[in-house]
Measured scan of single mutants.
Amino acid sequence: LVRYRTISKIPQITLNFVDLKGDPFLASPTSDREIIAPKIKERTHNVTEKVTQVLSLGADVLPEYKLQAPRIHRWTILHYSPFKAVWDWLILLLVIYTAVFTPYSAAFLLKETEEGPPATECGYACQPLAVVDLIVDIMFIVDILINFRTTYVNANEEVVSHPGRIAVHYFKGWFLIDMVAAIPFDLLIFGSGSEELIGLLKTARLLRLVRVARKLDRYSEYGAAVLFLLMCTFALIAHWLACIWYAIGNMEQPHMDSRIGWLHNLGDQIGKPYNSSGLGGPSIKDKYVTALYFTFSSLTSVGFGNVSPNTNSEKIFSICVMLIGSLMYASIFGNVSAIIQRLYSGTARYHTQMLRVREFIRFHQIPNPLRQRLEEYFQHAWSYTNGIDMNAVLKGFPECLQADICLHLNRSLLQHCKPFRGATKGCLRALAMKFKTTHAPPGDTLVHAGDLLTALYFISRGSIEILRGDVVVAILGKNDIFGEPLNLYARPGKSNGDVRALTYCDLHKIHR
């Protein structure tokens, strides 16, 4: 019993810090008490220290592992850092350059016999395009090294910054494609005289377009951006097909006994025919423009016929181009109408809503002055909100995010209106959640004399007048207030005048 009563005193000691020596009952000389009392004092002292730490809000209350900052290894790049964003855009520009100039170089340097010394005699450094290609190869190699040090988000939505895990993730992902696209074939085969082989191998750079397509997928929600990307894709495919079309004609031209190829026909049409040795002929500019003209006309199913396939190889390629053109029509131009419709969806919704308003007016036989006010209010409210119901949009977000959005939407009023000066951010967040926005066209009466005042109004834009009878008592403008002081009276009061809008007004109100 003594032991039980001794232990039962522990909660009292913990909360009230009572010393055991003052209790005459606990001072009985028993061996059990002498053993338990020192333990009680020690526990009391420890609990006292913990309570003191909690009340003082000291940093040592938290466990040590929670006080440590997340460790980022040296030379690790955050995937959302500004440097990584700028670097990704730079790589994107280099990939676009590669997609345009690599097929052009591979096709127009394929057994090209233009006048001038061969590239091997001039030297590697004197070729501007080769120098640019070398810079692109170096940048792609540097990009691989950067990807080995860039964080990523795993399946659990955690940012991984450990170098080993980053390397394994990159090896399992895009490393092989990036490595093949970054191989400097110019340096590996330079001086061997195989410019045709170098041009063909350099087309491996186009593998990076797969990554670019995935990154550009984030802009699919913007109709104008999608339309622009589709047109660029169409032009890029036409450019690639033009390079292939020229390569076919250029390879067949020296081996044909009869002059029936499209390059021969082009030379005869523009007065620059090929001679018996295969030299001469149109310039590279004429060849490229004509090839691009043929691919565009074939892809769009126009086909004027002034550039036509004559050999079997050219006919087979033309059939493939027609098939590609039909697929592009289905996948690209078939979506253009939907994209344009999405661009004008706001206008369509406006006309639909206006039609419903006019049908309501016609069905209920609203008189002319009231009908005009109804239409003007709808037009003004639509121009202010673009038909978007803010309350319906915010309803799907958590309250903390709703408060931040409301604070942002009402920031101008909260910053410049005098009653809100000096208020804490928590108070402003709470008030912003209570605001209701209303609009009024010129001549609209917001409050009639004798109406119950259940709200306090803040003028965000425009001006109003307060009338008693036919006498203008006051004219209020931006950041002015009218209405009933909230919670100042037990019952809502009545208006002693009319409140009429002089201009288009936007008002925020808080109800009782």
Rank of each mutant, 00 (worst) to 15 (best):
N275V: 01
L134I: 08
A167S: 04
L207H: 11
L94C: 15
N250M: 13
T98K: 03
P118N: 14
W89I: 07
L145T: 04
A423F: 04
N410K: 03
L188T: 04
K434Y: 04
V86P: 01
L187A: 09
G267Q: 01
I405E: 02
L414C: 01
A204T: 05
S412K: 07
C417N: 07
W262P: 01
M179T: 13
S345W: 10
H448D: 02
G422T: 09
I388F: 15
H239I: 01
L187V: 13
K287M: 04
A235F: 07
C122N: 01
T424F: 02
T102W: 05
L129A: 09
L90K: 01
L92G: 01
I324V: 08
P309H: 01
R74Q: 09
S161C: 13
N386C: 10
F296I: 13
G422V: 09
L209I: 05
I324E: 01
W75P: 01
H79Y: 01
L266Q: 01
Q402L: 03
I72D: 14
T347S: 10
S194N: 14
R214K: 05
R362L: 03
Y377D: 12
S161N: 07
F108V: 01
D257Q: 06
R259K: 15
K425H: 09
L187E: 11
R259H: 14
R74C: 06
Q379M: 04
S301T: 15
R371Y: 01
A99K: 01
Q68A: 13
I340R: 03
S297L: 01
G123C: 01
G223E: 14
Y65V: 08
N335E: 07
T295G: 01
C122F: 01
D133H: 01
F333C: 04
N386R: 12
R74L: 05
F397K: 01
G334A: 08
V307Y: 03
F234S: 01
P103W: 01
Y65M: 13
E114K: 14
Y377C: 11
I284F: 01
A107C: 01
F190G: 14
R349L: 06
V357D: 01
P273W: 01
L292W: 01
P163H: 03
P184I: 01
T233V: 12
E121K: 15
Y222D: 08
L109E: 01
K272L: 01
E375K: 11
D268R: 12
I244N: 01
G334T: 03
E375Q: 09
L206T: 05
Q372G: 10
A440C: 13
L67M: 14
A182C: 13
L401W: 01
V307R: 01
G280N: 01
I405V: 08
A204S: 05
G199A: 11
T120M: 11
T445D: 03
G443T: 01
P419E: 08
V132G: 01
A213G: 09
V321Q: 06
R165G: 05
G271H: 05
I135A: 04
E112M: 06
T347G: 10
N312P: 01
P441W: 09
T98S: 03
F304T: 04
T352Q: 11
R71G: 07
H162R: 13
R421H: 08
R165D: 11
H162M: 09
M322R: 03
T76I: 13
I166T: 04
I144L: 06
A119I: 07
A430W: 08
I166E: 01
K202H: 03
E115A: 13
L129T: 06
E196V: 13
K84V: 03
I339V: 07
K202E: 01
H416E: 14
V357N: 03
Q379R: 10
I332S: 03
F228S: 09
H239F: 01
E114Q: 15
G396H: 06
F234Y: 05
H239E: 01
A130Y: 04
R356W: 07
G281I: 01
D88H: 01
G426V: 02
S105N: 15
W240P: 01
E196Q: 15
I146W: 01
L431M: 11
I366D: 01
V180I: 11
S277M: 10
T385F: 04
P369M: 03
Q127G: 05
N368C: 10
I138F: 08
K111H: 15
Y80I: 11
L134M: 08
F175V: 01
L67F: 15
D217Q: 08
C406V: 05
V289F: 01
L78V: 05
M322T: 07
T347V: 04
G422K: 12
F296P: 01
N386P: 01
I146E: 01
V336M: 10
A440I: 13
D133L: 01
S298I: 15
Y104V: 01
A432Y: 03
S194E: 14
I244Q: 01
V168I: 08
N154I: 10
K215C: 04
S313L: 13
F171D: 01
I189H: 13
Y222F: 15
A225H: 04
M139W: 01
A224C: 14
G267R: 01
E158S: 09
T76G: 01
L394C: 03
A106Y: 11
I340H: 01
P442Y: 01
Y377G: 10
F360M: 04
T295K: 01
S383I: 09
L197S: 03
I324S: 03
D137W: 01
A130P: 01
H439R: 11
G271L: 01
S298M: 14
H416D: 13
L109M: 13
L197N: 03
A330T: 01
M256I: 15
H364W: 05
V212E: 03
Y344Q: 07
G280V: 01
T437C: 07
F296M: 13
M231N: 01
G422R: 08
E359H: 04
Y384G: 05
R429Y: 03
A130V: 05
M328F: 09
V86M: 12
A440D: 01
K66V: 09
L78S: 07
R71V: 14
L90I: 07
L401V: 10
R429Q: 01
L401D: 03
V210S: 08
H73C: 05
H79T: 01
V307E: 01
S337Q: 08
V168M: 11
Y344D: 08
A330K: 07
L206M: 08
R208H: 11
N265S: 13
L206H: 01
D137R: 10
L90T: 07
P398C: 03
K111D: 11
L299E: 01
T424V: 03
R362W: 01
Q353S: 09
I388R: 04
F304N: 01
R165S: 08
I141D: 03
F304Q: 03
H73M: 04
R358A: 04
P398V: 02
D444Y: 09
L188N: 10
T295Y: 01
F296N: 01
W262T: 01
I366G: 02
D286S: 01
S298Q: 14
L188P: 08
C406N: 08
F304K: 04
M251W: 13
M433K: 09
A204Q: 01
K172P: 01
L374Q: 01
A224L: 14
Y344R: 04
L241M: 04
A247Q: 01
A291M: 01
D143R: 01
W174C: 03
Y219D: 01
I361R: 02
E112G: 08
A125S: 14
H351S: 05
K425T: 15
G261P: 01
I177G: 01
M433P: 04
V321I: 15
A99E: 01
A106W: 05
C427H: 03
L394E: 01
F435P: 02
N310V: 04
R165E: 13
A423I: 10
Y219I: 11
D217T: 06
G346W: 03
K272D: 01
T347N: 12
E115T: 14
L134A: 06
A182M: 09
D137S: 05
L263N: 01
H239D: 01
F185Y: 08
G305Q: 03
I166L: 08
